[in-house]
């Protein structure tokens, strides 16, 4: 549960997620009995909304705000395992963790890796899931319903199971992928052994895994487009491409925005794939910022240093998300 809230905390303050906006605007005070009208008045007076949001706000504070505040606090200390057991051993070190972070080549490396992962992953997920959704939307036969379930499957499969299977596929000497390539007389690809290749391999696996959910989102959005638009366009002689370009894509604008924002946040926190498959190697080519934080905190017990790292990542995510919302607003205003 903290997870969802954790994701939501990244919404810049004062910015209502557009979903909520449209949902709210549809709620009109129902005309009817006096009691309902009184309730509507109370809502207008502004008490009830607080009652409704209180549970999620409390959870947000407990599992979102408080941990972030604590992490900020810890990032100015040298907290380690010894300090956990005995608080008198914890020292304030000021900005030392942050200066160390900016001098740490491994942290630089992990930031660069994360940028590459985002650069590969976000367009990858967007294109793959949109394409699959468009293709799946062409029919509603039993086969297509079955295919829909099939495409969703990677999203709900345990990452460890996925890692085991993909680990076998990617195996350089005995893996299935290279066996298939050898049939075509193509040399073995060092999927996870070569630093440059391994980033692509992990991104590929993550795109495959991350697309299923977004396919569902796009399918839902596609089905919400009124067929009249297409009929009208067809009458005007618009071909397939024009219908896609001038009706489908504009109508999917919000869905695309949503997918881009959530996918970007997810990929900025790229963690599980390198964690289970490469442990950040070879030569740190797949060490993402999240993996760096995890290793620092939970393998080396440098909680202060790890907190500084996670705070920097947190700020990056906030800034990136804020920029997206801002450009979205500019687009709407235009």
């Amino acid at each position: 549960m903290s997870i969802d809230i954790g994701g939501r905390k990244l919404t810049p303050t004062g910015e209502q997620p557009p979903v909520a906006q449209s949902a709210l605007s549809q709620v009109t005070p129902a005309p009817g009995t006096g009691r309902l009208r009184a309730a509507a008045r109370a809502v207008r007076r502004g008490y009830h909304p607080y009652a409704f949001i209180a549970p999620s706000t409390l959870l947000l504070i407990a599992f979102g705000i408080v941990p972030i505040a604590l992490a900020l606090f810890v990032s100015f200390t040298d907290l380690d395992l010894k300090g956990l057991g005995d608080h008198s051993q914890v020292r304030f070190v000021g900005l030392e963790n942050y200066t160390r972070l900016f001098d740490d080549p491994l942290f630089h490396r992990s930031v660069l890796n994360t940028v590459i992962f985002v650069g590969l992953g976000v367009p990858g997920v967007l294109v793959v899931s949109l394409t699959v959704a468009l293709l799946l939307n062409t029919a509603t036969t039993r086969l297509f319903r079955w295919l829909r379930a099939l495409f969703f499957l990677p999203s709900i499969t345990n990452i460890v199971a996925i890692a085991v299977v993909w680990g076998y596929l990617y195996q350089t000497d005995y893996g299935l992928l290279n066996q298939l390539l050898s049939v075509l007389h193509i040399d073995a690809v060092p999927w996870l052994d070569d630093p440059e290749t391994s980033r692509f391999s992990l991104a590929l696996m993550a795109i495959w895994r991350g697309s299923g959910l977004n396919v569902m989102i796009f399918l839902a959005a596609l089905q919400a487009i009124p067929t009249e638009y297409y009929e009208a366009a067809a009458l005007d002689g618009a071909g397939r491409w024009h219908r896609l370009r001038y009706i489908t894509l504009p109508m999917l604008r919000f869905a695309i925005f949503f997918v881009v924002v959530t996918t970007l946040i997810a990929w900025l926190q790229f963690f599980e794939e390198p964690f289970v498959l490469t442990n950040g190697g070879p030569l740190d080519a797949t060490t993402s910022v999240s993996l760096f934080i995890y290793k620092t905190g939970f393998n080396h017990f440098e909680y202060g240093y790890a907190s500084a790292g996670s705070f920097v990542l947190f700020l990056i995510i906030i800034v990136v998300t804020a920029i997206q919302f801002r450009s979205r607003r500019a687009e709407l205003d235009a």
Binding site: S2, I3, D4, I5, G6, G7, K9, F63, G64, V66, P67, I68, L70, A71, V74, L84, G121, A206, R209, G210, T262, I265, A266, W267, Q269, F270, F271, E272, E273, S290, I293, Y294, G297, F298, Y303, A306, S307, S310, L313, F314, I317
Partner: peptide
């Protein structure tokens, strides 16, 4: 890859 890792890590640190 889960959008929640930092949040989860932060929460774990905090819960400690």
């Amino acid at each position: 890859m889960r959008r929640t890792r930092t949040a989860a890590t932060t929460t774990a640190l905090a819960s400690l």
